Simulated scan of single mutants.
Amino acid sequence: MTPRRPARLVVLVSGSGTNLQALLDACADPSYGARVVAVGADRDDIEGLARAERAGVPTFVRKVGQFTSRDHWDRAVTDTVAGFEPDLVVLAGFMKLVGAEFLTRFGGRVVNTHPALSPSFPGMRGPADALAYGVKVTGCTLFVVDAGVDTGPIVAQRAVPVEDDDTADTLHERIKVAERAMLVDTVGRMARAGWTVEGRRTRFGDEG
């Protein structure tokens, strides 16, 4: 799929929004090829929303507890995001799993990051699990979201060496630095070149 330019990004956050800020900074350059048209969250009063507001980007909040079921919440988030006509939805530290309706509406156009080299160490404890296993190299993955947990087709990966004196926290901090750079570089390429998802393979429009 090749989005019109600049590509319209909707970013969903749950916390401090450092990945969001990296995208906002990149989008300030017209040559990047994308702009953030909305930022959504599942919580009030978080720095991610404040970052969007300072940048003049519309925001919305949809809390799970406001709805009678998780399906109703998913439908509300889906309808709200759809209203901004995104070319790409970026889950940037968004701590809720999107549901079937969301994935049906935006299939192949939702990406998320994971702090490990998928398919290794899925779930919330990627850096700690990598450290406990004793690997010498871990990293981060950008993937197209599917119905599983960190199981979607891989778009990009970056390697991060594990140092002998690493703790889970120090390792995770270095992974986050690589993750932000990977996210900005790859989303920009998706915006400028387009992309297709064929089974487990993701291809960019600028690949021969």
Rank of each mutant, 00 (worst) to 15 (best):
R4F: 09
R5M: 13
A7P: 14
R8Y: 15
L9T: 09
V10S: 07
L12G: 00
S14T: 09
G17H: 10
L24R: 03
A26T: 02
A34V: 00
V36E: 02
A38D: 03
V39H: 01
A41Q: 02
R43V: 00
D44P: 04
D45I: 02
E47Y: 11
G48R: 05
G48P: 06
R51M: 06
R54Q: 14
G56S: 04
F60W: 02
F67M: 08
S69M: 04
R70N: 01
R70M: 01
W73L: 04
D74Y: 07
R75A: 15
T78M: 06
V81A: 13
A82L: 13
V90M: 02
L91H: 00
L97R: 12
F102A: 02
R105L: 07
F106D: 03
G108C: 08
V111L: 06
T113D: 01
A116D: 08
S118G: 09
F121C: 06
R125H: 15
A128I: 11
A130N: 14
A132D: 11
Y133A: 13
G134W: 11
G139P: 12
G139H: 10
T141Y: 05
L142P: 12
V144F: 08
V144D: 04
A147H: 14
G148T: 01
V149M: 15
V149P: 01
T151I: 10
G152H: 10
G152C: 10
P153C: 07
P153K: 11
Q157C: 06
E163V: 01
D165V: 10
A168M: 08
H172V: 01
G188D: 05
R189D: 01
R201S: 10
D206C: 08
D206P: 11
D206W: 14
G208W: 06
G208D: 15
